[in-house]
């Protein structure tokens, strides 16, 4: 008898959360990387007031995406190195429940990093980043990255090149998400009228739904054997 779908999903996500709460390995690495990246950007770009307004959403999103590479690689490599993926494959659960569970965990870890980044960047760059719309865009954007990332990282950790391959295969595919989040968050920070940019979060929702469906359907093919 199979374990009900959602029960399996939550069990996998809970396992990831518990491991993370005990080791704090992922969030620590991602968080430290994100902080460094934000600081380095401010040196590298020498941002003045006007330039900050234009480029801060780019800084935010590049940092989130690169931090998510770290998290995704770690999260999936862990499953593989410790042989847990074989146990999951043997367990009487639906294959897609593994995807949903890993996705949920990766989404939450990246979200934590994103949520920490908002107040830190608001302070360092003196920009009002804590706004309801920015939070909505953050949620939708990270959902998109985590979806394609979970599928692709499951593949790349099984290849010879391992960690180094994920950014190469993931960046192009994540481009529609990146375009939409950068556009909409720049518009929000520039106080543009809502009619001018509301199309971007809508596109983002469509892209998220499409990716979720496609990755959900394709996942069972990347964990066979």
């Amino acid at each position: 008898m199979k374990t009900p779908f959602w029960q399996a999903v939550f069990a996998i996500a809970r396992k990831d959360l518990r491991a993370e709460l005990r080791s704090r390995e992922l969030v620590n690495t991602m968080g430290l990387f994100a902080l460094l990246s934000v600081l380095i950007f401010s040196f590298a770009l020498e941002l003045d007031r006007a330039a900050r307004q234009e480029s801060i959403s780019g800084v935010l999103w590049v940092t989130v995406v690169f931090a998510s590479f770290l998290g995704l690689n770690r999260s999936l490599a862990m499953e593989r190195d410790q042989g847990n993926i074989d146990a999951l494959l043997l367990a009487p659960i639906h294959r897609n429940a593994i995807f949903a569970g890993k996705l949920l965990g990766n989404f939450l870890f990246t979200l934590v990093v994103g949520l920490v980044l908002l107040p830190v960047m608001s302070l360092l760059y003196n920009m009002p980043l804590i706004q309801p719309w920015i939070l909505v865009i953050l949620l939708l954007g990270i959902a998109g990255f985590a979806t394609v990332g979970t599928l692709l990282a499951t593949m790349t950790v099984q290849t010879r090149a391992r960690e180094s391959l994920l950014p190469i295969v993931m960046l192009p595919v994540a481009l529609p998400v990146l375009l939409a989040v950068v556009r909409s968050s720049t518009a929000v920070l520039n106080n543009a009228p809502i009619d001018d940019w509301i199309a971007w979060p809508q596109i983002l929702i469509v892209v998220d739904v499409v990716y979720l469906t496609v990755c959900f359907l394709l996942f069972e093919y990347v964990i066979e054997s």
Binding site: V148, L151, L152, M155, T156, R160, V173, L218, Y221, V222
Partner: peptide, 23 residues
């Protein structure tokens, strides 16, 4: 590049199919 990174032919074809659909 992804194709080149996988030695097992069966796995290579499977992963390439998945990435080709996403791409």
């Amino acid at each position: 590049m992804l194709r080149n990174g996988i030695e097992n032919p069966e796995q290579r074809r499977r992963f390439a199919a998945v990435y080709g659909i996403l791409a």
